[in-house]
Nucleic acid binder design. Sequence first.
DNA 1: CAGTGGTCTAGACCACCTC
DNA 2: AGGTGGTCTAGACCACTGA
Lengths: 252, 252
Amino acid sequence: MLHIKIMSPSTTTPALAFRPLYKQVVGLITRSLEIGEWKPGVALPSEAELAVRYGVSQGTVRKAIDELVSANLLIRRQGKGTFVATHSDPDSFARFLCLAPNDGEPRPVSNVPLACWRAKAGADVARHLGLEPGALVIIVRRLLRIGEDPAAFDEIYLPGGLFSELTMDVLNSAESSLYSLFESRFGVRAIRANERLRAVSADKVSAEALQVAEGAPLLLAERVTFTYGDKPVEWRRGFYSTRNCHYHNELG
Amino acid sequence: MLHIKIMSPSTTTPALAFRPLYKQVVGLITRSLEIGEWKPGVALPSEAELAVRYGVSQGTVRKAIDELVSANLLIRRQGKGTFVATHSDPDSFARFLCLAPNDGEPRPVSNVPLACWRAKAGADVARHLGLEPGALVIIVRRLLRIGEDPAAFDEIYLPGGLFSELTMDVLNSAESSLYSLFESRFGVRAIRANERLRAVSADKVSAEALQVAEGAPLLLAERVTFTYGDKPVEWRRGFYSTRNCHYHNELG
DNA sequence: CAGTGGTCTAGACCACCTC
DNA sequence: AGGTGGTCTAGACCACTGA
């Protein structure tokens, strides 16, 4: 495959049109990931092969891969190869769950689907998901247990177009995380998310689900999840009971 | 300055003793930052000079600096140089404040010191700060306003040894953030922090400070802040009122 | 052993900033 | 014009993995 070293200096933005070669390679690799040329979990061609394919040096390919690794899209394993990141690999993709037990003891996390239905998107859900108001959305309620304790009660809004075959049966058949299910069953890969946290009082429904008193303080996490190209694919409101757990965050 | 390319293969861990050259350069630069050879805000010697100084190629120095840049210890500015990161630069170091107004309108953040006193460290504070129980700690209470709204009420515990001259007068003289004050006045540079969030009910003191009803839900953020060498330098409990603000976090 | 990623080098050239 | 960081190359060698 050929590449274009000289950027056409767009007349509107004369000097800003410069785009380094390795950035172009980033774009090409990302595109291949997006269209599924390399599936989650499998190895990419070696750096040397990619260098030939894109007509650049190995160093340039390396720099491109560096960027995709730090964006968590790829994983390097020395001596083995470079792999497409996947939510099925617990090591690499438990990073969207920020809840941890207070005492530090690791506990099994279990996923309890409660309900799944269709509805028309309201104004705010449509806005977050980039849909027309009234578009079809799928709503999932689920409980997350950490050890024995109910820790999170989530209401999850998904674009109907991407998840049309999602049902309670599908949810119940999922052995691991939801994102892993989205990836393997619907080809939707969650890349990054923006989360907003607030403290609220438990309403009746969430109090019951989390087995706390109505009015008890809960952590409300509202999350928009994105896939390639910053396309939103999930809007989620999660109520977290922080009696035995906390939300952890690293600043730096 | 000379460098050692061949690692003495420690007899206890034969094969694990390999340490790449650029990692050693990272260590040397970090050490210079730590002992204050280059102060916050000033430029480092050029990459070429550092290459000569450490007896390595410029590429190796670059790779070392890459790592320190992504750890937020250094900042590159093309055409100008590489600079020591500083909390005084609002661009680079507002990153410890995760609170933002709900409507997205940027508002001025103001810092209102309320109290400052000495005490002996209790068991948990001592543990978080790595001190002996009973060691001298300085406790600061302050209010953070975002626009006109009281947004955060913080109780901050500092090791007495590092901040011995901290008083209300010093706090009142600070024009910008606390971490900026720590850096310029006490030579203590906050590098990273671990934060744990919970939802709690407002007690009388924090309710009054934040002008919310007693029992209202608040976001409690407990933070340990570290400097070079993962040494803890601050333990903080902050109560956030999330009526007009939220805590934002990027996952991915 | 061969294949992979990881390190290191030396040198050329480019983009950006300042004087 | 002269300095800085930023890109790109080609090649050598090292560390890790697995057959």
